[in-house]
Design a protein around this nucleic acid. Structure first.
Length: 435
RNA sequence: GUGAGCGUAGCUCAACGGUUAGAGCACUGGACUGUGGCUCCAGGGGUUGAGGGUUCGAAUCCCUCCGUUCACCCCA
């Protein structure tokens, strides 16, 4: 006797997006594409895996992503490859590899696709997740920053999420950040006893991280900690001041957030996040900033850049709480025709008729479980459930007379029409020429 | 990687340690042998996550594993 095979299940943290929910995803994606193109961004498609070295150098050796979250494997040639945990480094790589900057600056691109991080899943966090990301590479001035933030806010408005918070900060650059970090460390060290155990460790490893600790005790301490924007060097301070002027002029609303930090070394100056406080522990729906040091790291050329990434799962769950996004089957408009057949002979005709209707561009349904031997009742029920506007009934009676019965599923009325005119009739209905 | 909660039908959930593990929704059929939505009736569907233990008897108590959820960590 053969043993029953156990069911093969999906991989942890890699959820399926089912047909019932995929409509919302498609809506977000198409709306995004339109807005992004209006701002002068073009899509770029990069591989979902890269040489491991790209991420190690790009994201930083010491980062959590590189240290413990990458899906890394050795391919048959012995080379170490990694499923992309983020796409900024690959995009910067591609921009340099294909010399796109020679076509003019900045290079403005966006991408939509899956990312992979080996983390423990929880609300809003997955091992395979999806991002829409935007990068503008090659220009240093604050206008790019302002345009990008206006775009980011615009996207959220377009999706129907206008109330989320935009947090903004400037974390300086290599010429001024070290002295700030020094002052911050000094400040925290004198209050070390009041910090949580994690933060006491962070104090040595990455003092900036203490600022965004959730522990109430730590927050009380850091509430009066020195702020990075008070320690910016002149060029950084000027950049930030001009950015804020531009944002005010554009009427982009934001909140200055001195706790907002980016852990990685290549981040410079502008840092920002979109937060949905209703979301739970993982409440950053989008995040980004300037990375003027990144190109140097992965291509050996100092080229400024700025970008952000939006977490699509987090956008979609933010949307799910909103009534206006409800797109249940029942709200969908009635459209097309269901061909119901009664008997083997009518079913043969019906099967061919369905194909002709579909080729003519009409949304058409039929029963696939039988061959005209299913009850009319159940076929009508299927037509109703699948939201067809009409049901074309083809039985022995009709076939003998060379007709078909066209039933209006909305009003309930029905009429006999000659079989030969069915396709023509329904394409005219579709074009709105005929009720 | 750490901690806590939860695993019963496709889904949402019942069942004081005690007959054959139930209900609603969904699905299929019928009432209406060729007319949907509403109503009523019937039917199919379960290794109670898996394995072990305690007991006369376990969905229920204990242990291990697995899965899942939330949180820490970190981030989209």
């Amino acid at each position: 006797m053969r043993e029953v095979q156990p069911m093969i299940k999906g991989v942890r943290g890699a959820p399926d997006i089912l047909p019932t929910e995929v409509g919302r995803w498609q809506r977000v994606e198409t709306e995004s594409r339109r807005v992004l193109e209006n701002y002068g961004y073009h899509e770029i498609r990069i591989p979902i895996f890269e040489r491991t070295e790209l991420f190690v150098r790009g994201i930083g050796e010491g980062s959590d992503i590189v240290q413990k979250e990458m899906y890394t494997f050795t391919d048959k040639g012995g080379e170490s490859l990694t499923l992309r945990p983020e796409a900024t480094a690959p995009v910067v790589r591609a921009v340099h590899e294909h010399s796109l900057l020679s076509e003019g600056k900045p290079v403005k691109v966006y991408y939509i696709g899956p990312m992979f991080r080996h983390e423990r899943p929880q609300a809003g966090r997955f091992r395979q997740f999806h991002q829409i990301g935007v990068e503008a590479i090659g220009v240093e001035g604050p206008r790019v920053d302002a345009e990008m933030l206006a775009l980011l806010v615009h996207l959220f408005e377009e999706w129907g999420l206008p109330d989320l918070e935009l947090h903004l900060n400037s974390i300086g650059d290599p010429s001024c950040r070290p002295s700030y970090v020094e002052r911050l460390t000094e400040f925290l060290r004198s209050r070390k006893a009041k910090l949580c155990r994690d933060c006491q460790e962070r104090l040595d490893r990455n003092p900036l991280r203490v600022l965004d600790c959730k522990n109430p005790g730590c927050r009380a301490v850091t509430a009066h900690a020195p702020k990075s924007i008070d320690f910016l060097c002149d060029p950084c301070a000027d950049h930030f001041r001009r950015l804020r002027e531009l944002l005010d002029a554009l009427e982009v609303k934001y909140e200055l957030d001195p706790r907002l930090v980016r852990g990685l070394d290549y981040y410079t100056r502008t840092a920002f996040e979109i937060v949905n406080p209703a979301l739970g522990a993982q409440n950053a729906v989008a995040g980004g900033g300037r990375y003027d040091g990144l190109s140097e790291e992965i291509a050996g050329k100092a080229v400024p850049g700025i970008g952000f990434a939006v977490g699509l799962e987090r956008v979609v769950t933010s949307l799910a709480g909103k009534g206006k996004d409800r797109k249940t089957l029942g709200d969908q408009p009635l459209e097309g025709v269901f061909v119901a057949t009664l008997g083997l002979e009518p079913d043969r005709h019906g099967f061919l008729l369905v194909q002709r209707l579909r080729r003519a561009g009409v949304r058409t349904g039929l029963d696939l479980t039988g061959e005209g031997d299913r009850s009319l009742r159940s076929q009508l029920r299927q037509a109703d459930k699948e939201r067809f506007r009409y049901c074309l009934i083809l039985g022995e009676d009709e076939l003998k007379k060379g007709e078909a019965t066209l039933k209006d599923m909305e009003g309930g009325g029905q009429e006999a029409i000659p079989l030969g005119t069915v396709v023509d009739h329904l394409t005219r209905v579709k074009r709105g020429e005929h009720p």
